[in-house]
Write a protein that binds this DNA or RNA. Sequence first.
DNA 1: AATTTATGTCAACAGTGCTGACATAAATTG
DNA 2: CAATTTATGTCAGCACTGTTGACATAAATT
Lengths: 176, 176
Amino acid sequence: MAPRSGAAAQPIRTAVTADDGVDFTIIELLYFAYRDFTSDPDQILSEYGFGRAHHRVLHFVNRMPGLTVAELLDVLKITKQSLARVLKQLIDAGYIIQVQGPRDRRQRELYPTAKGRTLTLELARPQSRRIHAALEGAGEAERASIERFLKAMVNPELRAQIDHLPGNKPGRDDGK
Amino acid sequence: MAPRSGAAAQPIRTAVTADDGVDFTIIELLYFAYRDFTSDPDQILSEYGFGRAHHRVLHFVNRMPGLTVAELLDVLKITKQSLARVLKQLIDAGYIIQVQGPRDRRQRELYPTAKGRTLTLELARPQSRRIHAALEGAGEAERASIERFLKAMVNPELRAQIDHLPGNKPGRDDGK
DNA sequence: AATTTATGTCAACAGTGCTGACATAAATTG
DNA sequence: CAATTTATGTCAGCACTGTTGACATAAATT
């Protein structure tokens, strides 16, 4: 029965578990893993006066040099106003430069500077080290399983984007 | 040579790749996978006027009923001021109730209400479905590899906490 | 010439972290 | 018992990063 308004609701003293048909283990592992995964660059970024948003912009500009503002928005799935704030700071501080689009002069192609490339690598290195350590003892098959799983966690419409990043095979992500 | 101040920095036109000794593939997969993984509950939460922080609190109260405020802070690694804001809202809205600690009456044990339990499951279900779909065709060994990897991504000091959650085996996470 | 597109910018607001300061009640200690 | 420490709560302010809405400009397209 529904508690009358005025009667105090009863505390439930038993934990939810996998019995409820839900995979809590992996839900929690993803939360903790991602939190710690991002903590490495966060610390470095704070020394530069940047935040996680700057990291993402810098990262994808380094991975896809020459991409336009619209393309970057499409990768990050944020609004142009959100992007403008951090992008301007990265440009002013000399980590990224804009080049007028050669075909379409309205477009702004985004490129990292040497300084931007250096910072990108500095931020990526501890993350890569953490991944490498977590894969210690894992074979190629295991690594492939992990990559397949993570990719399958991404919304299907966006998997194509991942394939277009340098070094990624145009993977089989859908049996149909 | 360092660019003179006044000379425009040159754009770097080549992409960073795994050649730079960094595992960009998994770095990016983690970013995209986590983003989409959280998008399911985020949408539901907005209908309730809650955010991701509420989700985390509600989740762990449901997974560890009766935990104290201090214990919750230790799991979430946030400040009590950050917690207070969202916890108060969850209590006022009847998703969580506080019970005075039996041994130490300063403590507040946190329990979900029936309403809180229901919402927790509603939020966890789409995440679990996504995980299940991503594991389609994967065997037990593959699943174990993925869990081992994710756990190894977590800072070592915190792995013990994960083992204490219901349904998690006190796993071997460190050979030493 | 009119419209659409790519980008930039201003303003306001929401959510969720943070620090610092102070208050209260209960437990612990000397 | 008195003093101190601990668990929790609360107020105020700030930072970062996301949002919406509105408007401006230049270049491309129709």
